[in-house]
């Protein structure tokens, strides 16, 4: 059924072209996903610049939130990487805010969650993975390969352990991207499924409605939590590249 498919739980993830842009063969149209990315970009910029515009010695609510987000990521980097993680702060902060706003904006009804697309999350994870690997080689040269040799393991186990370590290293971008994508996908699909019960059940629809309300709270938590997980794993990977084990 075409119409049912159109309003199915997964239809919310459809990419809709808003402004077709073609560069030769390439289709780089401005879509609902692009729109949410631009809104996230503008939203984060306004949140930080307007919140910090007063430069108050004693911060108000808004400035406190700005400072809180800043110090949250500073603390995250300091705890996981240490003092030399300070250089990567702008990147981790941008990553955290971008994913957080992407997740949070997706909670607004009828909006679109660009972090629910595996292409986007995998691209972000790939940037992290490639960047961290380059960082490791720049920092340690060939000795970076020592990272794949677990310390305190007898040489006899190396043929077994080294492939495992390499596979686990290579699976990092996959786990990082799929975790975020799957969380967003599952949460939003579940919300949509239960929301679909509300009109069908009539008066009894308050039960799924209450469930949707509760689930929305949980989803807000997950939206934050997944941005946090994305940021902290990036920090851990940076730490591995800098300090090897």
């Amino acid at each position: 059924m075409a119409s049912a498919e159109h309003h199915g739980p997964l239809s919310q993830f459809e990419i809709k072209t808003l402004l077709p842009i073609h560069l030769g063969e390439a289709d780089i149209s401005f879509t609902n996903s692009s729109l949410m990315m631009v809104i996230a970009l503008i939203g984060i910029t306004l949140f930080l610049l307007l919140g910090a515009r007063r430069r108050a010695l004693v911060p108000g609510r808004w400035q406190s939130m700005v400072e809180l987000s800043y110090e949250f990521i500073v603390g995250l980097l300091r705890d996981t990487v240490g003092p030399d993680g300070r250089r990567y702060f702008p990147f981790v902060f941008t990553l955290f805010m971008f994913v957080l706003f992407g997740n949070m904006l997706g909670m607004i009804p009828y909006s679109f969650t660009f972090t629910s697309h595996i292409v986007v999350t995998f691209a972000l994870a790939a940037v992290v993975f490639v960047g961290v690997t380059i960082l490791g080689f720049v920092k340690h040269g060939v000795r970076f390969f020592a990272f794949f040799v677990p310390p305190g393991i007898s040489v006899a186990l190396w043929p077994l352990m080294i492939p495992i370590e390499i596979i686990s290293y290579l699976s990092r971008p996959i786990s990082l991207s799929v975790r975020l994508f799957a969380n967003m996908l599952a949460g939003h699909t579940l919300l949509k499924v239960f929301a679909g019960f509300v009109p069908v059940l009539g008066a009894a629809g308050v039960v799924p409605l209450a469930f949707v309300a509760a689930l929305s709270g949980l989803e807000l938590l997950i939206a934050f939590l997944q941005a946090y997980v994305f940021a902290i794993l990036t920090c851990l990977y940076i730490n591995d590249a800098l300090h090897l084990h």
């Binding site: 289709d27 780089i28 692009s34 990315m37 700005v66 800043y70 971008f98 292409v119």
Partner: peptide, 29 residues
């Protein structure tokens, strides 16, 4: 077919955001 568009807009917005953060917002905070 939308993958390229998503990637282009992702790197565009993320890149601009990174520059804004690094140059303006974070130094101010």
């Amino acid at each position: 077919g939308t993958f390229l568009s998503q990637l282009v807009w992702l790197f565009l917005t993320f890149g601009i955001l990174y520059i804004v953060m690094k140059r303006s917002a974070l130094p101010r905070i």
